[in-house]
Computed example of a mutant assay.
Amino acid sequence: MRYIASILASAMSLAAPLAAATAAPAAIKIAVFPFELEDFSAGAASIPPDEIDREQLRLATEEARRLIAQSGRYLLVDVGAVNEPTAKAGKLRDCDGCDAKIAAGLGADQSMIAIVSRITRTEYAVTYKIRDARSGALVDVKQTDLRMGANVAWSRGARWLIERRLLE
């Protein structure tokens, strides 16, 4: 009986490093900033973003965060307390990667910004940009080719992009 126990103990000690080597990689800590609107439509000069646009951006952000968190590949870092003026103004897309520095300050490994580009009042595209928080280098950039629907479809575009590009 002792002989069998010693054989099992030896086998288990040999299997432990193998199990550790095949374990899933640690989740990447990612700061997902609120979606931003970039309006290229003909009406942009005369029709500023309104409450409906802001609500649809919020819903698209929530959908993206939900899918990213559910994947298990990422761990969301809270960006709610960020006081950076560029972030508060919804202009991270224009700051040449400052989102990475903000994310690093929050303890994230990566940052993600997403832009809804309004082409017309019924056509849009959604783009995300992920940066390494330490170096600021772009890790991934993807855009939808979904150009259909008004602002109520932005979260659908975000879902398509996250599911079929980021998490695929």
Score class of each variant (00 low, 15 high):
K91A: 12
V82Q: 11
L106G: 02
I28L: 04
G97E: 11
C98E: 15
E55K: 13
A42D: 14
K88T: 07
L67D: 01
G149T: 02
A104K: 13
A31Y: 01
L57P: 06
A60W: 03
A103K: 03
L67T: 02
I130T: 08
T122Q: 10
G105M: 06
L76Y: 02
D132G: 11
D99V: 07
A24E: 15
E62G: 02
G107Q: 08
L59E: 13
I47F: 11
V32M: 00
Q70K: 13
D99G: 07
L92I: 12
L37F: 06
A24C: 09
A81C: 02
L146D: 03
N151G: 00
S10A: 15
A133K: 07
Q70G: 05
R66F: 06
P34Y: 02
I115P: 03
D140Y: 01
A23E: 15
V126H: 00
A60K: 02
D50G: 12
R147K: 14
S111Y: 10
D78K: 05
D109M: 05
A23D: 14
R134I: 06
L8M: 14
T127Y: 01
K29F: 00
Q56Y: 09
A103L: 05
T120D: 09
I47Y: 12
T61K: 06
L37G: 04
A9E: 08
A9C: 14
D99C: 10
M148H: 04
D140H: 12
K129D: 12
A27Q: 02
Q143E: 14
D94E: 15
M12Y: 05
A133M: 05
A104I: 01
A133L: 07
I68G: 02
G90E: 05
K142V: 03
A45R: 14
P85F: 11
M12H: 04
L8I: 15
A24I: 10
Y74L: 03
A31G: 02
R93F: 15
E84P: 05
A100W: 08
D53C: 04
I47A: 14
I113F: 09
F35K: 01
L146K: 11
K142Q: 14
A23S: 15
T144D: 10
D50T: 03
A31S: 03
Q110H: 13
F33M: 05
E36I: 07
A16K: 09
R121K: 11
L76N: 01
V77G: 00
L14W: 09
L18Q: 14
A64D: 02
S46C: 07
R147F: 07
A108V: 08
D39S: 05
L67P: 04
E36P: 05
T122S: 13
A81L: 06
T122F: 10
L106C: 04
T120I: 08
R93P: 03
D132M: 12
A21V: 12
A103V: 06
K142P: 00
P25S: 08
A69F: 03
V77H: 00
E63A: 11
I119M: 11
G43C: 06
M112F: 08
